[in-house]
Design a protein around this nucleic acid. Structure first.
Lengths: 221, 221
DNA sequence: ACAACATTCAAGCGATTAATTGAATGATAG
DNA sequence: CTATCATTCAATTAATCGCTTGAATGTTGT
């Protein structure tokens, strides 16, 4: 270590930030926020090649944002702890708070400025208890099967038109997806509102719901 | 925008993380946490050339971590808001929590494993009120002049030997510097303890002290 | 208007990083 | 032990990033 200790420290911090500075790795972290996954599953979900995915994962591991364990032939990765999620969250908050660009993208997704405020997780839990709300899980079926909010209906974004007829016109609908990085729920709300339905978005996604200690149901059939 | 909205969003988040992924920029942010500064002052403090410093600052501004205003000929930069500080702090916490490398560097600085726990800001405020502690500000004189904890003595790290004779052997000493990224206080504590003094480090630095709403004195003479 | 000054812009170089390909490692099943 | 499979390593190429240099911009003071 010929450089000064001060620079050495800053480089360690920069390493962690650098691990978060590629869209591909943020995408991987978003997937891992849903639950632990193997390399192959992650590669498919993110559209990366296996080798490329493996290298990104090792970079995340070098920054200690994820850890891995071996399960037979497969290596399973997961977020190191809740701090990783917190760091991702704060990164998103700062970006959204400050960058006009982000707002423009999100506003475009939500179909104009009539997009309502998201529903807090606390509110949703209360309304679920009194049964006055329909919850919509806008994630791929396999992620839904691995865990979802109890009572939620599952539909892919591309299939959302199909379930519209089964929803009452005045019913309150809350859509959620993978989390703050995911845009499925934004798009679902835009589509439903275009049909005159009273749809809103859940604040955060399933990882945040689970992190709150709220109930999650799996398809253990 | 030919790429998907999803990728566009992730790229915005990655931009913020990328802005934090260079030691030079973290160093600039640490300086700005002390208070607003002009380009030339920042360049001198960080050892960067003016042009290079300016470019780094613009990168930070693009990520909306800092903002600038014009004051006559000079352009003054400052942190956008407390969220920037929060993001730096969480980055540091994650890095220190997870990376053994960081611990090794810090332990080396503090002169072995006998380094005591840092003093919380709340504790220090209480002890200051009862006058049972000597506070040492280990930053350059100009930063001390711009604001320091009331009653603190100021000494540069290189001059620390000089003030040792004036300290009572049993007195409790608390050292602080610029903040968590700064290693001056670590080194000061190591030096003082080597002389048998009862020295500890303050948790965080002046920016965090100020952020808590605690009193700061300036040399308005 | 002109000169002086602080900052920013633009171009170029060297070093690092991401993605691709193909080979090597490590664990399990027969 | 050997074959098989998931993952990782190694080497290559293209792109990006950080730093330097020298010119351009914009503001103040005369």
């Amino acid at each position: 270590m010929s450089i000064s200790p001060k620079t050495a420290l800053l480089e360690e911090y920069a390493l962690v930030a650098g691990a978060l500075s590629a869209p591909a790795r943020l995408s991987l972290l978003e997937q891992l926020a849903q639950g632990e996954r193997g390399v192959e599953a992650l590669a498919e979900k993110t559209g990366l090649t296996i080798a490329n995915c493996s290298q990104h994962l090792q970079q995340l591991r070098r920054a200690a944002l994820v850890t891995s364990r071996r399960d037979g032939k497969a290596v399973i990765y997961r977020l190191t702890d809740a701090k990783t999620l917190a760091l991702m969250d704060l990164l998103r908050v700062v970006a959204e708070r400050n960058l006009a660009q982000v707002e423009r993208i999100l506003r475009g997704l939500s179909g104009g400025e009539d997009a309502p405020e998201p529903v807090s997780r606390e509110d949703l839990a209360a309304r679920l208890a009194e049964g006055s709300v329909t919850v919509l899980d806008v994630r791929p079926a396999d992620e839904y099967a691995a865990g979802h909010i109890p009572g939620a209906l599952n539909t892919a974004l591309t299939e959302i038109e199909r379930i519209i007829p089964s929803l009452k016109p005045g019913a309150e609908i809350v859509a959620y997806c993978r989390g703050p990085y995911c845009v499925y729920a934004h798009q679902a709300v835009a589509a439903l509102r275009k049909h005159g339905l009273n749809a809103r978005r859940l604040e955060g996604g399933l990882p945040e719901w689970r992190e709150d200690g709220r109930p999650v149901r799996t398809n253990a059939s």
